[in-house]
Design a protein around this nucleic acid. Structure first.
Length: 606
RNA sequence: GCCCAAGUAGCUCAGAGGUAGAGCAACGCCUUGGUAAGGCGUAGGUCGUGGGUUCAAUUCCCACCUUGGGCUCCA
């Protein structure tokens, strides 16, 4: 949440009346007060800034004496002091003071942040609220819980440095984050949810499952995909290519670097320079840039010869790898990287075709996402950015309206993101909710009336006149890397069968009996004949139980165990366990192969 | 980019001003086991990189790189 919203929420303005009922926000804001009370006790001389409730809990900002900072260990100390204070059922006493009296009070206590907040209040505010919790006094509109005994399910979460008033030019304060609930069970559930998110973290899974890594030698935010991760990625890309081919896209390829002129013409160097890697100077001082987007290249393909209305809509698709200079503090696993591959396409069409093209596109996108097991969507419409935008208001309004109409026909929730568009046009983004309820921004569709003008794109219409096409920029995965990471978290590493690098592992009970190993290999061949990725684990010196455990940890979807008894029985029945479901079944090896092949072909989420 | 913290074996982590340890993984031997860890042994580290202080630095100091949590940003 932006800090400038926060500053005015809890402290500024005249006091509010007592609550009709106790809300979670009131509880959490009260917990913030209690925390500040504990901090002031434990760190004499600490100055406190603001401490609101948030979606997840609450925080409070402090300045500690002598530039000191909180360490992780301090959280436990503060928390236990809070627990003691809570037990005492200390009342939250409300007082209404004149503005001047309050200012004198906080000035006398050497609390400059509070004095500053009072000074910033609107001129017509004459009275302010002050809450006392034991010794602790805070400027606050309220309301609060009656006494500290209500705060029995509180947990401090982390410390952070934050800019005063959210501006990176200001000094940094120390912030402590915490959360609070009415009941301890709710707090326990919250902690379990965080633990679940940690367990699903794609960075952890990527290492555990040997999918990808970020070698320090290469640099921050630059991933390498290992064989298993590379295979998953190939499967994703193959399927995407197939669907795009069916949907009438043409496939193109473009280089990774270009002379600066291209990005001058596109406007990237004007609007997007800080997101780009610095240029390389080649012979004669010509500057070359790594591309942060693919659009100008696709435009040049369009412009390589005169175009007829008969060719439109022209849909150019590419898995285009781009490089963006992300600030060092923001790179994060696969979801925020400096080198990424977009499933990028640009559709050139006439104005008349635009609406039809957009609704077909949105349907296409949602269908494809569903094939990957994502089913819970929300649409977001991003409008013209205030400062960074090219083109007239009329053009923006037209493009925005077309997108809005398209979004509305899908029957999904549409939320507004004012000022969130690209510099060349508004966009619809598809937000996907994952298996544990987190929302990720995924696909985007952008209508662009600017690039066709800047690059002077034309086609000859049915009447033989030159006309201007419009462009639609769109990506479904967004970035393949990011999509990969989100899928991993969505599935907690248990990829659906069609995407699993190894689909079936066959474990021989006796690995020193050639006939048993041979039998296991026969089952493997049966699987392979059905197009399944299967392997026999016949590593010597391991017990069967240990191999099963190993395959479970690698999240191999199906594990078949075969041994001498099966061989002697000779009926072709094998035992298979499903890693995801944790079940076991006995069935004919051929039937198993059929079933798995069908599951993979259906792209069932498993 | 900013703040704080961290970086020791492939992984998870101990440790300490006198040049290092565990568990798992790897490798070898023994065990041939019927559904989530059999036993014994071996090998493995320029303690992130570069400087500085010191008789001596992996340990203390500085810079840089990388990672994490936030802040700002996310076209």
């Amino acid at each position: 949440m932006p800090d400038d919203d926060v500053d005015d929420a809890a402290e500024a303005g005249p006091p509010l009346e007592a609550p009709a009922e106790l809300t979670l926000d009131i509880l959490r804001h009260s917990a913030a007060h209690l925390m500040a009370a504990a901090v002031v006790e434990l760190f004499p001389g600490a100055q406190y800034d603001v401490g609101p409730a948030t979606d997840e809990g609450f925080f409070y900002n402090f300045r500690l004496p002598d530039g000191a900072h909180f360490a992780e260990e301090d959280l436990a100390t503060i928390e236990s002091r809070m627990r003691e204070l809570a037990k005492k059922r200390i009342p939250f006493d409300r007082e209404v003071l004149s503005r001047d009296a309050a200012r004198r009070l906080f000035d006398g206590m050497d609390q400059p942040f509070k004095v500053d907040i009072i000074d910033r209040m609107a001129a017509d505010v004459n009275e302010v609220g002050v809450y006392r919790t034991g010794e602790f006094v805070d400027l606050c509109r309220g309301p609060h819980v009656p006494h500290s005994g209500h705060l029995r399910a509180v947990r401090l979460l982390r410390v952070a440095g934050v800019y005063w008033r959210g501006d990176e030019k200001n000094e940094q304060l120390q912030r402590v984050y915490g959360t609070a609930f009415f009941e301890r069970e709710q707090l326990a559930a919250f902690i379990a949810q965080r633990e679940e998110a940690r367990r699903r973290d794609h960075r952890r899974l990527g290492a555990e499952l040997d999918l990808f890594s970020f070698p320090e030698e290469i640099g921050s935010g630059l991933a390498v995909f290992h064989p298993k991760g590379g295979l998953v990625r190939k499967l994703m890309e193959d399927y995407s290519r197939q669907r795009h081919e069916e949907a009438g896209y043409d496939f193109v390829n473009t280089p990774h670097i270009t002379k600066e002129d291209l990005f001058q013409t596109s406007g990237h160097l004007q609007w997007f320079a800080e997101g780009m890697f610095p240029p390389m100077e080649l012979d004669g001082g010509v500057k070359y840039y790594l591309k942060p987007m693919n659009c100008p290249f696709h435009i040049l393909i369009y412009r390589s010869r005169p175009r007829s209305y008969r060719e439109l809509p022209l849909r150019l698709f590419e898995f285009g790898t781009v490089y963006r200079y992300e600030k060092s503090g923001v790179v994060h696993g696969l979801t925020r990287v400096r080198g990424l591959t977009m499933d990028d396409a640009h559709i050139f069409c006439s104005r008349d075709d635009m609406a039809g093209e957009l609704s077909a596109l949105l349907t296409f996108i949602l269908d494809l996402l569903r094939d990957f097991g994502l089913t819970d969507f929300q649409l977001e419409l991003s409008t013209k950015p205030e400062a960074k935008a090219v083109g007239s208001d009329d053009e923006w309004t037209e493009a925005t309206e077309v997108l809005r109409q398209t979004a509305l026909t899908m029957g999904l929730d549409l939320v507004m993101d004012e000022g969130g568009g690209a510099f060349y046009g508004p966009k619809i983004s598809v937000q996907v909710k994952d298996a544990i309820g987190r929302t990720w921004q995924m696909s985007t569709i952008q209508v662009d009336l600017q690039f066709p003008q800047r690059f002077n794109l034309t086609y000859i219409d049915a009447a033989g006149r030159e006309a201007r096409p419009i462009m639609i920029h769109r990506a479904l995965f967004g970035s393949i890397e990011r999509f990969f990471g989100i899928l991993l978290e969505h599935y907690a590493g248990h990829l659906p069968l069609w995407l699993a690098p190894l689909q079936c592992e066959i474990v021989p009970v006796q690995d020193d009996a050639p006939e048993v190993v041979e039998y296991a290999q026969g089952v493997r061949e049966l699987m392979r004949a059905r197009g399944l990725r299967a392997k026999v684990n016949d590593k010597p010196g391991e017990r069967m139980q240990s191999r099963i455990r190993d395959a479970e940890l690698r999240k191999v979807p199906y594990i078949v165990v075969v041994g001498r008894r099966d061989l002697e029985r000779g009926d072709g029945v094998v035992n298979v366990r499903s890693t995801r479901a944790g079940t076991q079944e006995n069935l004919l090896a051929g039937d198993l192969a059929d079933r798995l092949a069908a599951e993979a072909a259906a792209r069932s989420p498993g």
